[in-house]
Write a protein that binds this DNA or RNA. Structure first.
Lengths: 154, 154
DNA sequence: TATATACCCGACCATTTTAATAGGGTATTA
DNA sequence: TAATACCCTATTAAAATGGTCGGGTATATA
């Protein structure tokens, strides 16, 4: 069970954007230099983030990217899903034998819920605050469903 | 973010072991035939499970494997960790530039906690019960640490 | 004791996935 | 009008995974 760099780079880049949100938009070159992520790779990533409405682009000289909304309104889950990180654990691409029950289906489904709920509860502004403790998990019961935006991705 | 077959096969095989726990031990051939998992691959897997004390082997004709303890005492987390499934999301193999703070470290660490806590809360006997709802997550606060066995794996 | 059954073990290979590159564009503003 | 910066597709190299292969060793029954 591993994270792909897609999701990790997306979070790292978004955090950089927040920390450097000043007068000028942040260019991809700056992020590439600071975080050691390939420029072309960043470009591919930022297209997705922009299309999901998480960032805004400013073209022309002096242009770059800025967050589209306050960091407190952007969850880690939203960033990772926008980047294309997958969270499907059950029966990946495999079909079951005719009508056979999948004993583990509910397990993986529950796992996905738990993960997304946690990532949804953490916002970008929390990560740039070294003193904040985010090692906990919110309570979840079966009636406490995921938010619409995240559920739609499924 | 994906599961490897290691973890999934381990859970599937352990469940099969539980469902077919009768007079005779279960042979790997039976599991291989029923679940469509390569025999050699199962052998490699079961060595690990045995060494972690989750199953017991019976050699000779009529031999096979049985659960080493009641299914209610075996968590999914224990099975997956025994199988070698990894749960490290932070800085995988990458070192940071000198002394630089890792802003996302706590995030991935918290994610790991949440995942393991959930998998630890689900026991094998629950999975073979179709009516049980396991899509919830137990409450976790910072003082509620992981059990020793699982923590040691880290 | 012989032999069938079943577990044990290390090395190896093929496929898939991922991470990253390359290169050619288009829009915008100083 | 030229520099800057974003946009897009196709391709490739490396890593990880999933699985095979062949040769063992232990045990229990006949």
């Amino acid at each position: 069970m591993k994270l792909t760099t897609k999701g990790r780079y997306a979070v790292v880049a978004m955090l950089f954007l927040e920390r450097n949100s000043g007068i000028k938009p942040v260019t991809l070159s700056e992020i590439s230099d600071s975080e050691g992520i390939s420029l072309s790779y960043l470009e591919q990533l930022f297209i997705k983030l922009r299309r999901k409405g998480l960032i805004k682009s400013v073209r022309g000289p002096g242009g770059g990217y800025v967050l589209a909304k306050p960091a407190a309104e952007i969850s880690v889950a939203a960033v990772m899903l926008a980047a294309g990180e997958q969270f499907d654990f059950c029966c990946q691409g495999n079909t079951h034998k005719d009508g056979e029950r999948c004993f583990t289906h509910k397990l993986w489904d529950g796992l996905r819920n738990v993960i997304l709920k946690y990532l949804e509860s953490v916002r970008l502004n929390q990560l740039n605050d070294p003193d904040l403790d985010i090692s906990w998990c919110v309570c979840i019961d079966s009636t406490d469903k995921l938010s619409g935006a995240i559920k739609d991705e499924h």
